[in-house]
Write a protein that binds this DNA or RNA. Structure first.
Length: 490
RNA sequence: GAGCCAUUAGCUCAGUCGGUAGAGCACCUGACUUUUAAUCAGGGUGUCGAUGGUUCGAGUCCAUCAUGGCUCACCA
């Protein structure tokens, strides 16, 4: 007992007392017929409540106001809270004695009749009740709730109990994800599941997590993208597929990055990146409309208008506009290096035009892209899986969508020339051998698939967590991930 | 990985110049049968993140470490 805090010890004493009185503190399933929000909705904010409105509900006691031989309390269930009223005269002395052993945090089931108090609050006058579970630890304070972010993430269940707005975000997340699926399913896309453990981590430039399979004595990577497997399915004739699921990248943690995050990748044969742009803006606007009822949301105190069509700007135009550099006038690596140096950037030896273009874009342009914007046509050096533009072989049919200064989607007309793909992989391997741990690996098996022939295809990836951030006005990715990655605490 | 900040009761926080630890909520005792941040009277429940050091004396000063947040770097 000496390890328990005073409050825990007292709760355990009450637990023992309940058992002494012949009451099982960990009750069986309770037959619930009503939920708090439904009851409140049924009777409105004023007016008489007819007699005989019987209800049965269960939930957690969130506040208790004892007045001697009667008590008020608030009961919280999945729908919200409702006040309950317990009177010794109504339930009898021995039952009231049991009720007095309840603490904030306990879960009980009860039946009663709905009435309106003098002050007008809809309340359930309890007739019968039963303990369902005794809480052995006290809940966080009712007024300030749980604000210690460390505890909020590590003990998310407490955050959910005491912070309705936190719960609301995760309910919205669930609905938004469901609507993404609905939208894609209605468009005749097929949801598939591909391996999460890869022998080659491909489809993105990122450092993977590694693991090991004992029976096969084989090292495996957790996937960093779903791309290469989904394209194999396109080769296989599954013309419209998507996968919505977890991706793992062994990189930094920030308000925009969690080591595991959720993406949806969508592939459509006989489509190109223009089709993917339309799909992106329609998909996002539609799910916002369906779940939030609007296409204009507030993010960080600014209006974010999701209504299609979103503006399209080539990367070269965007750089000209925000960084005042005209890459149409820059054709060599040396000229690009000079332009970057003039901007005050640290230019690596041997940096090439396409990489510098991308760096300048990320440094000077991205942060300006608050309203949803498509940045179109990316340099080939940073787009090893995208198809080369017919009219400019240094550029690809690729776009990224930006919202609130963050990249939320990446898409291209897929590269389906296996020989070109092999050369691009080989360039990545060379970068890798030069020490770039994020450069891609050569996936021979994927190249073989391409050699069987992949039809012209548009592919799209959307970062679900970031999209949810924007749609729920959440400043940190940890606000939209129930259990964000945390350091292990001793 | 770097810089800055934080860590005190179950929770939210104060703690002055280094002098034996404080408040609100929660909790305990008593009163109270329509309250609602219930009220009234009483009660402080603590390894001051950890370990060293300085000092007669450390929550407070110094060092190291741990955890978290923010910013930067990396990344989506």
């Amino acid at each position: 007992m000496e390890n328990y805090s005073e409050q825990e010890a007292i709760r355990r004493q009450k637990l023992a007392k309940l058992k002494e009185l012949g009451v099982e503190p960990y009750g069986e399933k309770y037959d619930v017929t009503d939920y708090a929000a439904d009851i409140l909705g049924r009777f409105g904010s004023s007016g008489d409540i007819p007699e005989g409105q019987q209800v049965a509900l269960s939930g957690r006691l969130i506040t208790i106001r004892a007045h001697g031989k009667a008590s008020f309390a608030n009961l919280q269930d999945k729908s919200g809270q409702i006040q309950i009223y317990v009177r010794q005269d109504d339930i009898g002395e021995s039952e009231y004695e049991i009720f007095e052993l309840f603490d904030i945090g306990d879960i009980i089931g009860l039946t009663g009749e709905v009435f309106r108090t003098r002050r007008g609050e809809i309340t359930v006058a309890v007739k019968t009740f039963r303990p369902l579970v005794k809480a052995l630890r006290p809940l966080p304070e009712k007024w300030h709730g749980l604000t210690n972010v460390d505890l909020r993430y590590r003990q998310r269940y407490l955050d959910l109990i005491v912070s309705p707005e936190v719960k609301k975000v995760f309910v919205l997340r669930s609905k938004l994800v469901q609507e993404i699926r609905n939208y894609l399913n209605e468009q005749d896309f097929l949801e598939v599941e591909t391996p999460m453990m890869h022998s080659i981590a491909g489809g993105a430039t990122a450092r993977p997590f590694t693991t090991h399979h004992n029976a096969l004595d084989m090292n495996l990577y957790l996937r960093i993208a779903t791309e290469l497997h989904l394209k194999r399915l396109i080769v296989g004739g599954m013309d419209k597929v998507y996968e919505l699921g977890r991706i793992f990248r062994n990189e930094g943690i920030s308000t925009k990055h969690n080591p595991e995050f959720t993406s949806v990748e969508i592939y459509q044969a006989h489509a190109d990146y223009n089709d993917m742009m339309r799909l992106t803006e329609e998909l996002i606007a539609t799910v916002a409309q369906k779940v939030l009822g609007v296409q204009t949301v507030t993010y960080m105190e600014k209006e974010l208008d999701l209504t299609p069509p979103w503006p399209r700007l080539t990367m070269i135009e965007a750089i000209r506009k925000y960084a005042n550099i005209d890459f149409d006038q820059i054709s060599t690596d040396e000229e690009a290096q000079n332009a970057a140096r003039q901007k005050g950037m640290d230019v690596k030896k041997g940096a090439v035009r396409g990489e510098l273009m991308n760096e300048i874009f990320e440094e000077y342009v991205e942060k300006h892209l608050f309203q949803p914007t498509f940045i179109v046509d990316y340099p080939i050096e940073v787009s090893p899986l995208a198809k080369r533009k017919a009219d400019d072989p240094s550029m690809t049919y690729r776009f990224e969508a930006f919202m609130a200064g963050s990249e939320i989607a990446n898409a291209f007309t897929e590269l389906n020339d296996p020989d070109d793909q092999r050369r691009r992989f080989e360039q990545q391997v060379a970068k890798r051998e030069a020490g770039d741990e994020e450069a891609q690996m050569l996936d021979e098996d994927f190249l073989m698939a391409l050699e069987y022939g992949m039809p012209p295809t548009g592919g799209l990836g959307i970062g679900i967590d970031r999209l949810i951030m924007m749609l729920t006005d959440s400043p940190s990715i940890r606000d939209v991930i129930l259990f964000p990655t945390m350091r292990h605490k001793e």
